[in-house]
Amino acid sequence: MKAIRCKAYGPPSSLILEEMESLHPNANEVVVQVKACGINYPDTLIIQGLYQFKPELPFTPGSDFAGVIKSVGSGVKHLAIGDAVFGFVTFGALAEEVAVPANACFQKPGKMDFSIAASFMIAYGTSYHALKDRAQLQKGETLLVLGASGGVGLAAVELGKLMGANIIAAASADDKLALCRDYGADQTINYSKTDLKSAIKELTNGKGVDVIYDPVGGDYTEAAFRGIAWEGRYLVVGFAAGNIPKIPLNLPLLKGASLVGVFWGTFAMKDPKANMQNAMTLMKWYGEGKLRPHIHKIYDLEDTSKALQEMMDRKVKGKIVVKI
């Protein structure tokens, strides 16, 4: 089987396409013949050695996958050879085959194509866990989403609106904000042109926002936190800006606010039943036409480095998919 391999930490151009031995499942695993793999921003970090964990070199990147089960390990009861599935792994999905823990694999709805399925679990799973479990977002509250046109950001806009919140989408370009409005944003902020703190204050009549969803980090974090409402919740989702910000701790004190970490992958592994319940809700909403993942572009496996570079260059709206 063919796989994208990272043999030394570096830019996307350093990745190679290599022929490897076919995989065999361990107990409680399945091997999936991959049809599509969604690209996520952490993929660009992991190949550079900049993510929270560093796989042993060499390794195959890629987390969000969809495909057909090729073989089943002992102890797996709910999946069978030939089942169309989607799910997530820590790494390994940018390949023709991937070995997956059975509890991280879900039956693909028949009407969901493989590209959509490979774009779904991490973006929507992360955002729904963040808004429902970590922030406990309530109907009528105001949600600010930073990096709102990206994969997880756009999912947060869509889910927040579905959960009854007033949505303020913040992004770096007007065309990105136009997409956010199409996905339910009530108000928008272009933080490349406008002071973020002042814009939040103006749009909320001085009250501030109840929940802030931040997959960006960097210079925008403190400005956004200064616009949080009393007893607001600040969701720390990621650091796409490249640097991890430091917050003066008097800010949460003065606002009675909470800094809340969101690490969906660990939640999914530690509490698979709760994650499964979330996934079933998301599948139901998708089946009802309430969720519609946005695919920016589809690449072939041999062009994976181009897909990752486009993600790093901040050109992506929604999700990029590698077709295999």
Rank of each mutant, 00 (worst) to 15 (best):
L146W: 04
R181W: 05
A118S: 15
A66N: 01
A95K: 04
G164H: 01
G87A: 09
A118D: 12
N190I: 10
K77H: 09
L162V: 09
S115K: 13
P101M: 11
D186H: 01
I167R: 03
V76L: 04
A80P: 07
D113S: 04
A171K: 09
K139G: 11
T126V: 03
C180P: 00
S74G: 14
S115N: 15
A80L: 02
L162C: 10
Q136N: 14
N103E: 14
I81R: 06
G140M: 10
A148E: 08
K70D: 12
G125Y: 10
G164I: 02
K161L: 07
V76S: 14
S74V: 13
V68A: 08
K139S: 05
L154W: 04
D113C: 06
Q138E: 13
V100A: 09
I168W: 00
K108Q: 13
R134T: 00
R181D: 00
A95G: 05
F65D: 10
K132T: 13
G82K: 02
K77E: 10
F91G: 05
K70F: 09
I167P: 02
G110A: 14
L144C: 05
S71I: 05
K193P: 01
K108R: 15
A99D: 01
S149P: 07
D175S: 06
A148M: 06
L154H: 00
L144T: 11
V100M: 12
E141C: 03
Q107K: 15
A117K: 12
D113A: 04
K139A: 05
L79M: 12
D175F: 14
I122D: 03
D174H: 13
G184Q: 11
I69S: 10
K108F: 08
A118M: 07
K70M: 08
G140Q: 12
L94I: 09
G164V: 03
G92K: 01
T142G: 08
D133C: 04
A185M: 09
A99M: 02
G160T: 07
T126R: 01
D133R: 12
